[in-house]
Amino acid sequence: MTTELTVARGRGVEPRPPRRADEDAKVPWRHRLTRLDVKYSPYLFIAPFFVLFAITGLFPLLYTAYVSLFDWELGADETPFIGVENYVTLATDDQFWNALVNTLSIFVLSSGPQVVVAVLLAVLLNTALRARTAWRMGVLLPYVASLVALTIIFGDLFGPQYGMINNLLEFFGFDRIDWQAERWWSHVAIATMVNWRWTGYNALIVLAAMQAIPRDVYEAAIVDGASRVRQFFSITLPLLRPTLIFVIVTSTIGGLQIFTEPKLFAPAGSSNGGATNQYQTVVLYMYQSGFQSQDLGYASAMAWVLFLIIIAIAGINFLLTRRLAGTGEG
């Protein structure tokens, strides 16, 4: 008796259960069991992901849209349906627009320089360094550290009164900066944290992509007399396109949900984004509305709007990056 296997090999034959000649007596029973095993086990194996995603990912996200249509206070007896009122309030809520502008401002300040520096860093790492791995580990150091701990440390460094950075500025004859109270500078400080944390990580991703570029492409360019700079812009950059798209889209999805850094940037009292919300982000405002003001309906409306914004910006980024990296050929 032949045994068909259930291994996927391209467009192989349909799976059939294996049979064993020495167990003829049991064949029907074993046969049926094996057939069930072959047919349903794969679904059983992938089920945990789908079940968990449905319960703790998809459902909450969809239910957020539902909650956003109610005046839903945490612990209240009645949660009246109010339609799109939360959204109407949101559209005229200065604090929300402020938070949205802050989020975008911090995001632009962090993602732009980060990608540029990551590519330059990758160029440096792509040389014939001695002790390559040590250098790579070195640039990755910030990525492994605890975000909460490091935000607190940066908060200390950027402290307006006794902070190390202000002391340095003063030492070199510059004016001290109130990194917490001044809106623009607080964004710069928070973006600095984000950049500090992620640049090395992204550099390694770009480096991996650079090393995957076939060497003969460069050799052909050298024969044609292309300069180093020209090679970088005409070969390296265009071939890095998919990787750059990946890096930018991931940093968009993460960057627009920034929470920990603004939450912990300044100690005590002003922990919800500053005294005048000068660096409050959307997720931080959502946290404040939902879990401190206990207005779950309103916070849900905010979450849903941010969700749509993220999808839209990720899409725009995708298209833009594809264009920009594509025009590298001169």
Binding site: F53, T64, V283, F291
Partner: peptide
């Protein structure tokens, strides 16, 4: 599965908290 990578599930914390 791959598409869900791009879903910001963090934004669903309100119902998750209620649950």
């Amino acid at each position: 599965v791959v598409a869900t990578l791009a879903v910001p599930t963090q934004l669903g914390i309100i119902p998750l908290y209620m649950a």
